[in-house]
Write a protein that binds this DNA or RNA. Sequence first.
DNA 1: GGTAGGATGGGCT
DNA 2: GCCCATCCTACCC
Length: 192
Amino acid sequence: MMAGTATMRFGPILPRSFYERGTVEVARGLLGKLLVHGGAAGIIVETEAYLGSGDRAAHSAVGLTPRTRVIFGPPGHAYVYLIYGMYHCLNLVAEPDGTPGCVLLRALHPVSGLEEMRGRRARSAGDLASGPGRLTRAMGITRAHNGADVTRGRLVVREPAQAHPVEIAVTARIGIRRSADLPLRFLLAGGR
DNA sequence: GGTAGGATGGGCT
DNA sequence: GCCCATCCTACCC
């Protein structure tokens, strides 16, 4: 018989109303939740908020273009883009429809589908899903998921099996030049 | 322990 | 043509 972890049940899928809030609230609220893609799942332990106004690091700062269309669309959808020609980054869209804002998922603590996740990484160096590029590779997320509704379907965010109080650390965001001093990176304490 | 540079392609000016 | 919301390897203390 298959491993018991494969049938582990999680809590309910986060509803669209979860995402239809301010981007910072969503970025903080996602910590401790479960990102699930098929049989692979991990606890979200690091996020960054990219704001619709006053944030020159956000892709949406250039305005509405074919690329940024999803960020301006309805909340609870995935915004996935290719960075440096080889890595994908996964964001979840926040704010009401028409207002830009999204949350970059930077790290997971894997809890299910570990072999599946390892299998996607050529030669593992570093943590399995720590870092936005590693996270998408381990979870099998590509640009094919751009625009996907994460409140239904194969790629979703769920409540954990049992919630526990979370302590959140706040720092500046990683790897950006513009608006680099804004305190918009959120980490689950002990999640690094 | 640390840092520097290359891989590699799409989006925007 | 330049700029990346990165990662990995090589090399140097």
